[in-house]
Design a protein around this nucleic acid. Structure first.
Length: 1062
RNA sequence: GGGCGUUUAGCUCAGGUGGUUAGAGCACACCCCUGAUAAGGGUGAGGUCCCUGGUUCGAGUCCAGGAACGCCCA
């Protein structure tokens, strides 16, 4: 039988933990995974791998809730699925954490430790956090085939990428190139733009104003400003803006060229402007570089070049250009065919060829360079300069720009095709397509290499002698072509350092080719999973069953150029098709003030903490109800609000049923009341239930969980809890007992059981708790878990659209009636003699008339009346019905509006009510208006409190007779006794004896309505008197301005009464 | 500089296909209800629907231009 359900102080997280344990102990998850294994229907979800490097934060839970939700929905619809979770394992982020663990500060530390041991540590870390994330995901209620998760470090994933790269190479798209990129001299690696943008800091640098003496012009120099003195040793050119105005300024015996607007701030002391000239006049001039004596600079010519990006706001308007030490410099170098001097090695140490600088670290040369220049008369002046400068997001080291060689995939040959593939995908929100196309249109060649240790071993073997290279496409190909090292490699995963032992023959010069030491871009790892996890290489039939995926979902920001890109790119190259049909993108999770969450800022919320504090069902509902295109400002206050707004009303509705049913011993199988014999409210709530089920199914199938949530929440809170249950409370009371009570139980039972199933994908724990108590406790033959049931389907036979419409009218009438009472400041406990309802909509009036019992009861009014002749005590406003008249009259409408404003509203109103046409003169022309062309509203009445909306007017008669007044007081008295019952801690079925001490009208009311009071309060005795100790719980109760004292004593319990009335 | 998005109440957000008085939650004030609900309901106050122009009888909604903010790319 049903168990009573507590409504106060429920520990939802504890309940969740208990159900979680049961799900796994009882094998529910296994049964869920196998539920549809024989099904013909298939739904293919592809999981974007989560980085297995840290415990989950609440932002991870957002995406994983979507993933679980849609999979659960399709499971309940009977679709076969793979339920495979994925972990992203390879890449620098893991290396960084392991370096921290080991206290390393440089690549040398790693090499000294041993790449093999280091890589093993990386693997360990990944498996450790994969296990932690698995447990956390389970706690989220995420049902997956956890023993079958994929790991991007797997041999299959890596070899599948080899295959992909081989295909690229066969097309001739893989090449080796150079670029200048941001570089961390500590980590000895390049950084992506993304990484750079995360690490800007305020830094003070020694900035230098340097003389670049012009060739052939004695004592004339360009004046150049730089904040990076170390790059001066690689200077090749100086850039000016061709259209900017420059000046030739004399100070003492020296003449300087610099931008006119910069002269005042750049020059110190008096100066004389000899000449103004455009930048273009300087272009082409040759000058002597600041370090021409260095061996590395031999043969390098320096000249002035034009560049539109130069400005005079900072510095001198002349920019020093070092193509080997700056990104834009490098581009300019290509454009103007400048020499490239690359001064630094990968640790930021000057290479040989730089004389006294050689061997010095980049971070320590600013002062020496300034002194050196000063000694040679080339330094104009120096100053400390504070600016935002990129630093390494991992270690904080200031970045430098460094010329590096990297490996690339040429994207132009397939750029168009991947754009076509993107267009076949359904993007949610729709603008996702535009964002992706924009990226694809503009993307540069794909840089796939990284000079690190832990990651995909790029399968590129290169000959050190002649530069020949080839790409190996599989482990078998490597074995066939290996000329040495295979035995050492055999048995290891294809990672550094083991893979590096294997050598192949150079097909060009016959030498020995080695693998390039670089590892791969991690997005190769994630983008290949539609192939690797679906066994593309070994079981093409299986792959075809599940490819392309029906659905993927990830956070939008970033993924356009990361996962979405790599998925589309690799799949286009391999099979010329998008690997997914629909992508649901969602925005970013912020803290409750809208700030980004950061560990370092202290505003990040870890998943475990949130799960234990608020419970995961609250979070899931919050996520699923949110518009995914909007950032989500997450916080505990929002969680509390969500619980109050939905989960508590749902829980309380469920508890209401369970507690009364338990008390009554109600058993659903022992009763059967045909729908036709149930009350209007019963039929109404069941009808609405079908509509909600239909809407939910439709919205979820369209990947719109938010709309489904809104529909369900409105139904539960407004219609079920605040209307159906509240209106029907008394039908469940123990003192009632008949077929009507059974009908009420059966109806509410059906609604709650359906809701449990409907909500199972959203809030799996609460749904399970409801289901176990509501279904399993009375029907052991039912599926063991709500998650093994089928999703509810709407029953058309229970839909009564007309009744739903009628009830909607009634609800509006109730609201207006409440508003009317409120306006007159008459509380609902005070009965009123009459409510009047009027409407221009005949169906509305008819609906309210039909359901007026509810109106009377709800508003505590004795009689119902229709406003038949409202013109007798109401005034009117008449307005044109614009949607009707607009198309008919067009431009004449404003004139008509003016004409109507001048007409007598009462007269027009009478005509409309009598269904007579009204004639109005518009611009000298007669226009005949029918009743449908006009809207008539009552706007005022005397002696009544009234409220109206567009279609309905509700007025309450405020004449309170002495009899009604006493009845109101009696109800006040009841209310007071009920409060006292509560504070006395009595059970709802305890009978009591009441002693009360009241005066005046109140005393009169109690006498007059004694039977009513006894019935309401389960009092077997009600006598006046001063309550004493032996009268039990004594309490003073306030009723409006009056007070009375009451004593309550428990005398027994209501006899058990069955729902059939025996 | 280019692409995309956002802009509606103090805050967070809803507002197919143009239509009468633009809504909800939170917060605030007042009131009410409670034999399910440490809950809930109602009312009030709070709006140049970012701006300008256009189309239209009528624009939060459609079109054009602009502004601010965010993301991405240069």
């Amino acid at each position: 039988m049903f168990k009573p359900v507590p409504t106060r102080g429920v520990d939802f997280p504890a309940m969740e933990r208990e159900l979680l344990r049961w799900w796994y102990e009882a094998g529910i998850v296994q049964k869920y995974l196998k539920k549809n294994e024989k099904s013909e229907k298939r739904w293919s979800f592809l999981d974007g791998p989560i980085t297995a490097n840290n415990p989950m934060g609440v932002h991870h839970a957002w995406g994983r809730t979507y993933k679980d939700f849609y999979q659960r929905f399709y499971t309940m619809l009977g679709y076969r699925q793979r339920y495979q979770n994925g972990f992203d394992c390879q890449g620098l982020w893991v290396e960084v954490e392991v370096e921290k663990e080991l206290g390393f500060t440089s690549k040398q530390d790693i090499e000294a430790y041993g790449i093999d041991r280091f890589v093993e540590k990386c693997k360990e870390r990944v498996f450790k956090y994969a296990a932690i994330q698995t447990e956390q995901s389970k706690r989220l209620g995420y049902f997956m085939d956890w023993d079958n998760s994929y790991y991007t470090l797997s041999d299959e994933n890596n070899y599948m990428i080899w295959h992909f790269l081989k295909v690229c190479h066969q097309h001739g798209w893989i090449y080796h190139g150079y670029d200048v990129m941001p570089w961390c001299p500590r980590c000895a690696t390049g950084l992506s733009e993304m990484e750079v943008s995360e690490g800007y800091q305020e830094v003070a640098h020694l900035s230098l104003y340097v003389r670049f003496p012009l060739e052939g012009r004695e004592n004339e120099s360009l004046l150049v400003w730089t904040t990076t003195p170390w790059t001066l040793a690689a200077n090749v050119a100086a850039a000016v803006h061709p259209e900017l105005t420059y000046v030739k300024a004399r100070q003492g015996d020296q003449v300087y060229y610099l931008a006119k607007d910069a002269a005042r701030t750049a020059l110190r002391g008096q100066y004389e402007v000899l000449e103004e000239l455009p930048g273009s006049a300087l272009v082409g001039l040759a000058y002597r570089g600041p370090f021409d004596e260095l061996p590395a600079m031999q043969g390098v010519a320096h000249r002035v070049i034009p560049w539109d990006e130069v400005d005079a706001e900072e510095g001198t308007g002349i920019v020093h250009i070092a193509p080997g030490a700056g990104r834009e410099d490098y581009q300019l170098g290509k454009e103007f065919d400048l020499a490239v001097v690359a001064p630094l090695d990968e640790n930021g140490v000057y290479l040989s060829g730089f004389d006294w600088l050689t061997g010095m670290r980049v971070g320590e040369v600013a002062e020496p360079i300034a002194r050196n220049l000063e000694g040679r008369g080339l330094l104009y002046r120096s100053e400390q300069y504070t600016h935002r400068y990129p630093t390494c997001w991992r270690c904080g080291t200031e970045l430098v720009f460094r010329l590096v060689d990297e490996w690339y995939i040429d994207v132009d040959p397939w750029r168009e095709r991947v754009m076509e593939a993107a267009k076949t995908v359904r993007w949610i929100p729709e603008f996702g397509l535009e964002r992706e196309l924009d990226w694809l249109r503009n993307m540069d060649d794909w840089m796939i290499s990284k000079k690190r240790y832990w990651g995909l071993a790029l399968p590129i073997w290169q000959c050190p002698d002649c530069g020949w290279f080839d790409v190996i496409g599989s482990e078998t190909e490597l074995e066939e072509r290996a000329i040495e090292g295979w035995e050492e490699f055999r048995g290891h995963s294809p990672h550094r350092p083991w893979i590096d032992k294997v050598k192949i023959r150079c097909e060009q010069c016959g030498g020995v080719a080695s693998r390039i030491p670089d590892v791969g871009n991690p997005w190769l790892d994630a983008g290949i999973v539609p192939f690797s996890t679906l066994n593309y290489r070994h079981d093409r039939a299986y792959w075809q069953q599940w490819f392309p995926a029906d659905f993927i979902t990830e956070s939008f920001p970033g993924q356009f150029r990361n996962w979405f890109y790599s998925l589309l790119a690799q799949s286009t190259v391999l099979v010329d098709q998008a690997p997914f049909k629909t992508v649901l993108g969602f925005a970013s999770l912020r803290d409750e003030h809208g700030e980004e969450m950061h560990k370092s800022k202290g505003n990040a919320i870890w998943f475990d903490e949130a799960a234990e504090q608020v419970g995961v069902d609250v979070m899931r509902w919050l996520y699923l109800r949110h518009n995914p295109a909007q950032n989500l400002n997450f916080g505990y206050r929002l969680c509390d609000e969500t619980r109050r707004q939905f989960l508590l009303p749902l829980w309380n509705s469920y508890a209401f049923f369970a507690n009364y049913a338990a008390l009554d011993g109600f058993h659903p199988a022992q009763h059967d009341v045909p729908l036709a014999e149930r009350t209007l409210l019963d039929r109404w709530i069941l009808s609405r239930l079908q509509e909600v089920v239909a809407v939910a199914r439709e919205r979820i199938a369209d990947y719109d969980s938010a709309a489904a949530c809104r529909a369900i929440q409105d139904f539960v809170v407004e219609e079920l809890s605040n209307w159906y249950i509240r209106r029907n409370r008394r039908r469940f009371w123990k003192t009632e007992s008949d077929r009507d009570k059974a009908a009420a139980y059966l109806t509410l039972y059906e609604v709650l059981v359906t809701l449990a199933k409907l909500l199972a994908p959203f809030i799996p724990y609460t749904a399970e708790a409801m289901y176990q108590n509501l279904v399993r406790s009375v029907d052991p033959s039912a599926p063991e878990s709500v998650h093994l049931t089928d999703y509810p389907e709407p029953d058309e036979g229970k839909v009564d659209a007309a009744l739903a419409q009628d009830m909607a009218w009634l609800l509006r009438a109730v609201e207006l009636g409440r508003a009317a009472r409120n306006k007159a400041n008459v509380k609902v406990r005070q009965p009123l003699p009459r409510v009047l309802v009027g409407s221009r909509v005949p169906e509305a009036l008819e609906a309210v008339r039909r359901l007026h019992d509810q109106l009377l009861d709800e508003l505590n009014v004795k009689a119902f009346d229709v406003i038949e002749r409202p013109e007798e005590y109401l005034t009117y406003r008449v307005r044109p019905n614009l949607p009707v008249l607009g198309p008919r009259l067009g431009p004449k409408l404003p004139a008509l509006q003016r004409a109507l404003a001048e007409a007598d509203p009462a007269q027009v109103a009478r005509a409309v009510r009598a269904n007579r046409p009204v004639t109005v003169v518009v611009d000298g022309e007669e226009v005949e208006l029918g009743p449908d062309d006009l809207l008539v509203e009552a706007i005022d009445r005397e002696g009544f409190a009234a409220f109206e909306d567009r279609d309905l007017i509700v007025a309450v008669d405020l004449s309170i007779t002495p009899e009604l007044r006493l009845e109101g007081l009696a109800r006040d008295f009841v209310r007071g006794v009920q409060e006292a019952r509560k504070s006395a801690g009595f059970e709802i079925d305890d009978t009591i004896a009441v002693v009360y001490d009241a005066q005046g009208e109140l005393a009169e009311a109690v006498e007059r309505f004694a039977d009513y009071i006894k019935n309401e309060t389960l009092a077997v005795e009600l006598r006046p008197g001063r309550p004493a100790e032996q009268d039990g719980h004594v309490e003073e109760v306030r009723v409006g301005k009056e007070r009375f004292v009451v004593g309550l004593r428990r005398v027994g319990r209501l006899a058990k009464v069955t729902a059939d009335g025996q």
